[in-house]
Design a protein around this nucleic acid. Sequence first.
DNA 1: CTTCAGGTACGATGCAAGTCGTACTTGAAG
DNA 2: CTTCAAGTACGACTTGCATCGTACCTGAAG
Lengths: 111, 111
Amino acid sequence: MAGRNLVGPEADALDLGAVFRALADEHRRSVLTELAADRSDSERGCNSFDLPISKQTQTHHFRVLREAGLIDEIDYGNRKGIRLRRADIEKRFPGLLTLLGAESPGGTAPR
Amino acid sequence: MAGRNLVGPEADALDLGAVFRALADEHRRSVLTELAADRSDSERGCNSFDLPISKQTQTHHFRVLREAGLIDEIDYGNRKGIRLRRADIEKRFPGLLTLLGAESPGGTAPR
DNA sequence: CTTCAGGTACGATGCAAGTCGTACTTGAAG
DNA sequence: CTTCAAGTACGACTTGCATCGTACCTGAAG
């Protein structure tokens, strides 16, 4: 039952290039935007994002997000948990997660 | 000679995906980091960035930056001026330019 | 045990993107 | 005018990446 946490980079080692590359993809960015919107930072099943792609491709995308240091993946064997590394991201790149909420032009941006 | 300003997206139309894709490349990110560091936002020649790539490739990269809405390109015919669209970027994605200053990780961080 | 759903590993494929070579255009300087 | 440097246009090449098919692994429920 106790899942093991898959490895990712340390907080100080987060690379901005890897982060931008990870967020350049629409599907990965939608996942992170959804995670950033949930302030409780609860663990989510990686099946709860309703991505219109096959599960092999989802595996690929979650791996990219993990290797960029944006999420933690907890492996339970036949299922997987996803958690946003909010503290580490805010420590290394403060304001990045807020940026993801500005997707819609009608948001907080004053005209 | 009065150069003409090449077209780019409006400030409200800046797309976060295009911005992340533009900043995913190391060369383009170095250009924008350098521009963001100069608070005077003076116009620069596109030859002043000392990029280790051919001029054709530089043309390509500056075009991507312009089409993402991050820079203005002023065409003088046989030379070109580059200017950061700081106000538009800050209006649409506040904090993004500050983020680029956090490039340097804290020391020896393998992987 | 068997079954089954969630997930991974590996390989193949198709497409987008970075790079450069050649040729052309532009404007300034002689 | 000619020359020259800066930049662009077009095409070709190569790499990277998103995607999926097939096969395999894992743990829970019958």
